[in-house]
Computed example of a mutant assay.
Amino acid sequence: MDDFLFRAVYMSDLDTVEKLLGEHNVDVNEADQLGRTPLQIACYFGYYEVCKKLLEKGAKIDEDCFRRAQNGWDGHRQNEIIELFREWQNR
């Protein structure tokens, strides 16, 4: 996959994420060279809106997403994202 989506997620650039997901045939569940999906990156950093957009486009919530949200950037627990994941799984 192009690195464009990963860069946009890493920078929390919601406009670019939306553009890439809307205009290009992007596999939102494809992993980068380190094995991370865009959703795993977004939840680790606490990017709620980016997570939500990725989920809307078919991103899969896996165990690693929860683990990254629980042990997020700089030791922060991403409670809002954990709740989003739970709500999304209950749909």
Score class of each variant (00 low, 15 high):
Gln33Ser: 12
Pro38Thr: 03
Leu20His: 03
Leu20Asp: 00
Gln78Val: 03
Glu80Thr: 04
Arg68Cys: 04
Gln70Pro: 02
Ile61Tyr: 11
Ser12Asp: 15
Asn90Phe: 03
Leu55Val: 10
Leu34Val: 07
Glu30Cys: 06
Phe45Cys: 01
His76Tyr: 11
Tyr44Ile: 00
Ile81Phe: 13
Met11Thr: 09
Lys60Tyr: 08
Tyr44Asn: 02
Leu55Ile: 13
Lys19Glu: 11
Asp3Ala: 10
Val26Ala: 04
Gln70Arg: 12
Met11Ser: 09
Thr16Arg: 10
Arg91Trp: 09
Asp32Gly: 08
Arg7Tyr: 12
Asp74Ile: 08
Trp73Arg: 15
Glu80Met: 12
Asn25Val: 14
Phe4Asn: 14
Gln40Gly: 14
Val9Ala: 06
Val9Met: 11
Ile61His: 12
Glu83Asp: 12
Met1Glu: 13
His76Asp: 14
Val50Glu: 03
Phe66Asn: 01
Tyr48His: 13
Val26Arg: 03
Ile81Asp: 00
Asp74Trp: 09
Phe4Met: 10
Lys52Cys: 09
Arg86Ser: 11
Glu80Asn: 15
Cys65Asn: 04
Glu30His: 02
Glu87Gln: 14
Asp62Lys: 05
Arg86Asp: 10
Tyr47Glu: 03
Lys53Ser: 07
Met1Ser: 13
Arg67Cys: 06
Asp13Tyr: 04
Phe85Met: 11
Gly72Glu: 08
Lys19Gln: 13
Val50Asn: 05
Ala42His: 08
Asp64Val: 15
Ser12Leu: 04
Tyr48Ile: 00
Arg86Ile: 14
Val17Trp: 01
Glu49Ser: 14
Leu54Cys: 05
Gly35Tyr: 02
Cys65His: 04
Leu39Asp: 00
Gln40Phe: 04
Pro38Asp: 01
Lys57Glu: 15
Ile81Tyr: 06
Val9Asp: 08
Glu49Asp: 14
Asp64Phe: 08
Asp15Cys: 02
Glu83Cys: 02
Asn79His: 07
Lys60His: 12
Lys52Ala: 11
Phe85Cys: 11
Phe4Gly: 06
Arg77Ser: 07
Val28Ile: 03
Asp15Glu: 14
Phe85Gly: 04
